[in-house]
Simulated assay, not measured.
Amino acid sequence: MLQPQWLRTFEALVELGNFTRAAEHLDLTQAAVSQHIKHLERRLGPLLLRQSRKLELTPAGHALLDYRREMQAAEQRLEQRLAGDDASQGELSLITPGSIGLAIYPHLLALQHEAPGLSIRHRFAPTAEVIEAVLENRAELGLATQRPEDPRLAVSLFAREPLELVVPAAAKVDGWEDLVRIGFIDHPDGHDMATRLLSRRFPGHPGVRHLPCRGFTNQIGLILAPVAQGLGFSVLPRFAREAFGAPEAIRVVDGAPEVMDSLWLLHRAEWPLSARADRALEWLTARLGSARAG
């Protein structure tokens, strides 16, 4: 095991650039600083190239410095998570799919402005990873597009969002032939979403796999960029479309029937939500309006 004092000595030496200043900063002798570095190098190999005027890190030295900083960040997160159950202090961790994530993240930032003591950790992930992260306590809250049946999870309906057919603002869409002419902008859920929506809007037509594909991106925030430039159409959830930064360049083709997706709120069933999580859910409920489930 690497002794914490050795790591503090190594970090100070790197930051201050020489043994004398590091020893003064740590209130140690230069001999003690040298001894700590020797202990580390015995375990890890050469960490420093001792040039005449400066110290240079070896690859192992860079790796150890990264490790030290990761450990400090982990300790800080632990302290935040173990802080008292204060709605205005500590860490709030959540994991969501991309579309709803785009919708709620600006609201979470607004909450953090109101409560600067909060540290919000928000990750985007597909449903399988969301469920896994909540079960393994890597996130307190999760949102999933499929309802899990695991008894360790408390599950409730969070919101419903329709799938939308989104085309360039000037595009004319009266029938399937227009979609063939415009072409499809695909994404990781593109074929599934387009199949579910287009099979209902345009029954009897051959399906999305027969449409010319004009492009693909796996970044939820970029799917509508080629659509806005007239390069194709796409099908995606409303929250993702509402978060797009150039709404004047795109248009939603209205029609019936609607295809609605449910978003499920997940957390561990064995213990109550933190005050921070309760506050965040109240905050989001007040701001998502009609999309929130009753």
Score class of each variant (00 low, 15 high):
D254R: 05
V227P: 14
T29L: 00
V252G: 05
P206V: 11
D150W: 14
A23W: 09
Q229S: 07
D278K: 05
G17T: 10
N218A: 01
P168M: 14
S52I: 02
L26I: 03
T285K: 09
I182M: 13
P46M: 07
M1S: 06
A73V: 04
W271C: 10
E164R: 12
I100W: 10
G98E: 04
R276C: 03
A228K: 11
P97Y: 06
A125P: 10
Q5I: 02
I120W: 00
A225Y: 03
V167C: 09
L179W: 11
S52K: 11
A63T: 03
A256M: 02
Q30V: 04
A243T: 08
G230T: 04
E248N: 01
G294M: 10
A240S: 00
G175M: 14
G142R: 14
A31M: 11
R287M: 02
H210D: 12
F244M: 00
H25Y: 13
R53I: 00
T58D: 05
E41F: 13
E41N: 09
A115M: 04
L263H: 15
Q89D: 15
R147C: 15
R50N: 00
L222E: 04
V130P: 08
I37M: 06
F184N: 03
P148W: 14
L108Y: 02
F184R: 07
V155R: 15
K54A: 02
L55F: 01
R238L: 01
S52P: 03
E149M: 10
L157V: 02
L47W: 13
T20E: 09
L179P: 08
V252K: 06
L94H: 06
E79Q: 13
I120E: 00
G207N: 15
A225M: 05
S93K: 14
F124L: 12
L28P: 07
A63H: 06
H210W: 13
P212N: 06
T127H: 05
L222M: 03
R147L: 15
L135P: 09
H267A: 04
K54W: 01
E75D: 12
Q112F: 08
S93C: 00
R43E: 11
P272W: 06
P59N: 03
A277M: 06
L163K: 01
Q146P: 13
P272K: 09
S52G: 02
E248A: 01
L153C: 15
L109Y: 01
P106E: 00
D192S: 12
M71H: 03
Q72A: 07
R251N: 00
D86C: 04
A291K: 15
R121T: 11
L111F: 06
A23R: 08
E56F: 02
E41L: 12
L224R: 06
R201T: 05
A225C: 05
T9Q: 02
G207A: 15
E164L: 11
A275S: 03
P151G: 10
P257T: 12
P162F: 11
A194W: 12
G183T: 06
